[in-house]
Amino acid sequence: MTDLTKYNYVLQHADNCLILGQRLGEWCGHGPILEQDIAMTNISLDLIGQARMWYQYAAEIQNEGKSEDDIAYLRDAWGYRNVLLVEQPNGDFAQTIFRQFLYDTYSCYFYEALMNSSDERLAAIAAKSHKEALYHIKWSGDWVIRLGDGTEESHNRMVAAVQELWSYAGELIKPNETEAKAHEEGYGVDLSAIKEKRDAKIREVLTEATLEVPESTYAHEGGKDGRHSEHLGYILADLQFLQRAYPGLEW
C-alpha cells in the first residue's frame, strides 16, 4: 500500500521546485541584463532538476506505474501541493529577487536538516540540492542588499516587494498535517527547529539592505493542501498544454 503521507510530503517539495522553476523560466530572454537573465534561468534549471529527483521518488512511492512526467503534467491545480509563495507572479526584478530570497532562506535550512533524514533517498536528494541552494541564496541575498541599499528607485522597489510578499513567508515554515506526521515518523524535517535560523538570516540580510523587517506575522496558507491562488491555473495552462493537447508526446 502506498505511504500516502510520504507521497504527499515528497510531492510538496517536488511542486515547490517545479512551480518556482517555471516562474523563473518566464524571465528567459527578458532579464534586466544578460548575466542576470542567465542567472535566473540557471537557477530555474537547478530547480527543475531538483523537481525531477523528487517526482521520480514520488512515482516510486506511489507505485502505480506512473512516471515523473505523468505526475508533473497530468494533475490539476488542486492536486498541486506547492506553497503559495512560489506561484506568485514575477512582478518586477525586485519582486522576483525577494520571492527567491524567501524561498532560498527556507530551502537552505530545510535541505540542511533533511540531510539527516532516516530515509536514505531523501537524505541523498537533500545533499545534492543543498549545494545548489547555497549558491542560490548567495545570489538572491546579494541582490536584496544591492537593490535595497542602492538607488532611491531600487530601494523603493525592494520596499514594495517586501510588502507584497511578506505574508507568504509564514507558510514555508508552518507545518501542515503531512509535515508534522513526516517529522514524527523520523524522515521529515522539524520546521520549528529551522524557523529561528531562517528568521535570523532574513533579518541579517534585510538589515544590511537598509530594509525594515515587517512585524506582521499574518500568513496566507493553503497551498500545501491544494488550496491555491488564482495564479497557479495559468501557470499549469502554460506548463501542461503540450501533454494535455498531445498526450504522450516526446521531443
Binding site: 532538476g49 531538483q50 545534492k128
Partner: peptide, 8 residues
C-alpha cells in the same frame, strides 16, 4: 552520478 541536478 549527475554533476548538477538540472544538467541537461
Amino acid at each position: 552520478t549527475p554533476t548538477y541536478s538540472g544538467c541537461p
